[in-house]
Design a protein around this nucleic acid. Structure first.
Lengths: 232, 232
DNA sequence: CCATTTTGAATGAGCGTTCAGCAAATATGT
DNA sequence: ACATATTTGCTGAACGCTCATTCAAAATGG
């Protein structure tokens, strides 16, 4: 009963990833962290674990350790591992959608500028992290056999696709290009996803190089609308 | 001691996938199947399992059942699950490389024809199966955290990349195109991988549509060299 | 105190691996 | 030819480990 350890305060000395630390730092500390804060902290730890160990080797123990919390914690805040993973994917999908939504807002109303913004924001620092790419890829690998994942992995979803298609269509009309817009759009979207895949595989490809490859595509597809520096 | 079951002969009545059946059918049956035949049979069953259940839920029991053989069998022919998976990936990588190698052979020596062949063969019936795409994707998801997989997943490897780059370079010179060939090649390769990814996710995208999207890309990039029907 | 959050030991299911043993195929001896 | 021994391929029960889940007890805040 004497000499009791104050665990929380000393345990924080452990090395947590910056993302987890930040998620836990929303004002309140230790026990006072709100439910939502804890959930976010655990989600960040899950992304860490997915990136570090891959889907199949991600364990609740690793997530809990990564968050600097105890073993049973996940089943308290989420009720199962499955639900934690879904919440994690949901979070990433929401973040992704918010990102391109905001980029579109800021782009003004010229189609060329919008398309450029949409392509550029995919390679944004905030989204296009090794950490997050790896997590995305982990989910992609499992999506085939899990309808729930499959639905969320289409964050690049129908709406996103339609906007892309509409923009390509507009530019085609403006510029009198000859291509078939469905195929063109598909190839462009696919190219961006493929670039993500390669970024994740990590053979010395950088965000900047990937982005400029995507730009190269825009240039040949819409020569009247773009230069390497941006929309005309 | 009386009334002994003839297991092998009756057990074959189970429903095995066509691929497994074919692998097991190389002349000899039952006990006489050669070591190499059995390995192939197990590899096909592994691809089935990866496609059906995803990487994380693929078990040796499922593989053995899929092959119509007993539980201990994998550890007899391969020595561990890990090695079975590596052998499976190796097999797919070899098959993929052989496929584009052969396509290149048959294409003659005009650069445009070669590039077309290289793109087309990626969407070949033999390679581009739902089953195999799903298996590829399962490995991609784990590749990040496993150097061995990462190395093999680059079957789309350096050599492949270099050929692509050289062809794009040649066409650029022939056609006086303005783009920067490194980026162009990267975007093209990425596009094909992205199309695979989407084929696997399976939102009603067909092999044919994916291929024509890739062709659309070739058209805008190399307008003087290609029509929708093929190289000029 | 009571409610809420957190802990960590206990539980049990699932899975990879091992291995003794059986049966088919092949080699050897007569 | 046949009988016997040896090798090879395969089986499936048993073992032990990892990990998600549960829960009683403790810590904390109000």
């Amino acid at each position: 009963m004497h000499l009791r350890l104050k665990k929380n305060e000393t345990a924080v000395r452990m090395k947590l990833s910056p993302e987890v630390r930040e998620a836990a730092d929303t004002e309140k500390r230790g026990r006072k962290a709100s439910k939502e804060t804890r959930r976010q902290q655990l989600i960040e730890a899950t992304i860490d674990s997915l990136a570090k160990r891959g889907y199949s080797e991600t364990t609740l123990a690793d997530v809990a350790d990564g968050a600097g919390l105890s073993r049973g914690i996940v089943n308290f805040h989420f009720e199962s591992k499955e639900k934690l993973l879904i919440a994690t994917l949901q979070f990433m999908a929401d973040e992704y959608a918010a990102n391109w939504g905001a980029a579109l807002e800021k782009a003004g109303d010229k189609a060329a500028a919008q398309l450029w913004a949409l392509v550029a924001c995919d390679f944004d620092r905030k989204i296009c992290t090794k950490r997050k790419l790896a997590a995305w890829c982990a989910f992609w690998g499992e999506a085939k056999s899990r309808p729930t994942y499959q639905a969320l992995c289409g964050a690049r979803d129908v709406k996103y696709q339609d906007i892309f298609l509409a923009l390509c269509q507009t530019l085609k009309d403006e510029g009198d290009y000859a291509y078939e817009p469905d195929g063109m759009t598909l190839a462009l979207c696919a190219s961006m996803e493929g670039l993500w895949l390669r970024l994740m595989m990590g053979d010395g490809l950088t965000r900047e190089k990937a982005f400029s490859a995507a730009v190269e595509y825009l240039l040949v597809a819409f020569p009247k609308h773009f230069t390497r520096e941006g929309p005309k």
